[in-house]
Design a binder for these strands. Sequence first.
DNA 1: TCTGGGGTCCTGCTACGA
DNA 2: TCTGTCGTAGCAGGACCC
Length: 425
Amino acid sequence: MRPATPILHVDMDAFFASVEVVRNPGLRGRPVVVGGSGERGVVAAASYEARVFGIRSAMPSLRARSLCPDLVFLPSDHAHYREVSRRVMAIFHRFTPLVEPLSLDEAFLDVGGAVRTVGEPVEIAAEIRSLVSLEEGLTCSVGVAPNKFLAKLASEQAKPMVSASGPEEGSGIYVVPPDEVEAFLATLPAEAVWGVGPRTMECLQRLGVATVADLAVVPEATLVSLLGDAAGRKLWRLTRGMDDRSVEPAQSVKSIGHEETFSVDLMDPESLIHELGGMADAVASRARAAGVTGRTVNIKVRFADFTTITRASTLADGTDSSARIVDVAGAMLNRIDPSPGVRLLGVSLSGLREGSVRQLRLDELPGDGWDAEERGDRLPRWREAEGVVDRIRRRFGHRAIGHGAAGPGEGPEDPVDRQRWGPDS
DNA sequence: TCTGGGGTCCTGCTACGA
DNA sequence: TCTGTCGTAGCAGGACCC
């Protein structure tokens, strides 16, 4: 086993909401929520003042409003959060090159090297908190522990709390020394362990398990028979504080997808195909920007009663062309009956590989009723057109050019950002 | 409480070729 | 030629994370 190197887990506090407060200091101290404002929208982030009212992320927006009539509801500005996140991550990089972002608002840092040059891990944590506060006006919580799993649990303990009397500051930094791992874990509920969600917890409760201490006495074989091989073994190790994953700065993307919940359920195939076109365009555009192609095209359909189905089709070679994705995804969509009402539609590209696409064979070209000669003539022009679209969007923004029936100016802003938290009102 | 969007990983099943 | 076995790939669905 490799020797434990000190790991930091840095988690920004109520990130999106806090960024909005920095941008508009008049909001300080008020219940602020960022998310989708429509009937089907959800809360993406809530300030601690909003949390006092019981508002949590992923809560339906309608319910959040009913809990707090004075709630300040802001639309999400993902591009801005990305930029702030980039600056925060740059602060982390001043201490170590081993920074693994988990999302825009949290990251693992391997500070084994920095210990020799900067100081003890807890001093590094304090320095990071001070710089983030000074340069960005934001607060963050830091967990310090011998591995990623424990560092993540530790940062949770350092977070601000909410009580009936209002938000209370947290400790900001929480350290789990190697010799106190067992005692630390014993205090936690079983749900705190990574991978234990509502379903797994339901299974564990049948064994009489409520806390990590209860879990620690369950034999590995029992967990494996209950949860399956991989999940059972992983849970057995984590409950003993065992986690030998290293901090990986460069994580390769495994899939690129886009999905949307509609403000009203769609039932006619034409509308769905139209929506599919926009989503395929967004996915292909992101794949080209990332310099990857994908072999498997996936679609996801959620019906009005919330049942969800997925379909996948694997191509002989990878693609990053919206026309090709629409072609394959459209064929799968056409085999699904939308009459019960489609609430959500999604498209994704998986089986990603780095590099651009090869020239397609004539029989692989998009359909659309083109004959072979027409196709051979059109394809290079199609790819050229997609390249031009990318260049226009890079220069003038995503809105400068739309997909299909939506002309310039009518189309959405960056599709990665639009309706990120549900359809707007 | 009537449930978003972007992902990852795992499991069970099936098809297929050696 | 037929049948069984094994490994692998693909598909569908589910659970979980932020």
